[in-house]
Amino acid sequence: MNDSVDPREAALRRLPTSYSLALRLREAGVEPELMCEYLRIEPEALAPLLDIAEAKLACALRPDGSAEAAWELE
């Protein structure tokens, strides 16, 4: 069994659950209304949540390890 995980998946696993789930749901093509139900948020909050999730993921993918502080603001 191959235990290697690609860097993006490893970064997603390190994110807080709400951010990781939001990105995974969007990637899976889940409709925004259903995403809001899963995430227990108002529709107006979805776009900002995804923006923050993408920023945190980008930080988590940095090779210099500067990502640790990126998700301390939950």
Rank of each mutant, 00 (worst) to 15 (best):
A28F: 02
I41D: 09
P32E: 07
E31V: 07
E31Y: 10
P63H: 11
R24F: 03
P32L: 00
E54A: 06
A70K: 02
L15C: 06
L50I: 15
R13L: 09
C59D: 15
E33K: 10
D51M: 10
Y38P: 01
L25E: 09
D51T: 13
V5C: 01
E33T: 07
D3S: 06
L15R: 00
A69K: 10
K56H: 09
W71E: 06
D6Q: 02
A60R: 08
D3L: 11
L49P: 13
A47M: 00
R8H: 03
E37N: 04
L57Y: 00
I52A: 08
R40A: 13
V5I: 15
R40S: 12
V30P: 10
N2E: 15
L49C: 08
D6L: 00
R40Q: 13
S66T: 14
L23S: 09
I52Y: 03
G65W: 02
R8D: 07
D6F: 00
N2Y: 06
P7L: 12
L25M: 10
A28C: 03
E42W: 08
A10Q: 14
Y19V: 00
R14D: 09
I52D: 08
A60Q: 13
A55N: 05
L12E: 10
M1R: 14
I41C: 04
V30T: 15
L73Q: 13
A45Y: 10
P43A: 01
Y38T: 08
V5G: 02
C59A: 15
L46M: 01
E68V: 10
E27V: 00
E9N: 10
L49T: 12
L50A: 05
G65Y: 02
R40M: 12
Y19C: 03
A70P: 15
S4N: 11
E37C: 05
C36S: 05
R8M: 09
W71A: 05
Y19G: 01
L39Y: 11
W71K: 02
L21F: 11
M1F: 13
E72L: 15
L46S: 04
A70Q: 08
C36N: 07
L21S: 14
R40Y: 03
A60T: 02
A53P: 09
L49G: 02
E68P: 07
C36D: 07
A45C: 06
R14A: 13
E9M: 03
A53C: 09
K56C: 12
R13A: 14
G65F: 01
A53T: 06
M1A: 15
S4L: 12
A47E: 14
P7Q: 12
R8E: 13
E42Y: 05
A22K: 04
L49V: 13
E33G: 07
S18R: 14
P32G: 02
D6I: 01
R14V: 00
A28T: 02
I41V: 11
A69Y: 08
P32D: 06
A60F: 08
K56N: 07
E68H: 10
A22T: 02
E74P: 09
A67L: 07
L49A: 04
S20V: 01
L23C: 06
L34M: 13
L39N: 03
N2S: 15
Y19K: 01
S20A: 15
P7A: 13
G29Q: 08
R13P: 10
S18C: 09
A22M: 02
A45N: 14
P16F: 11
Y19N: 00
L12C: 05
Y19R: 04
S66V: 11
A11N: 00
L15W: 03
S4M: 10
L57E: 03
A70H: 05
L73I: 12
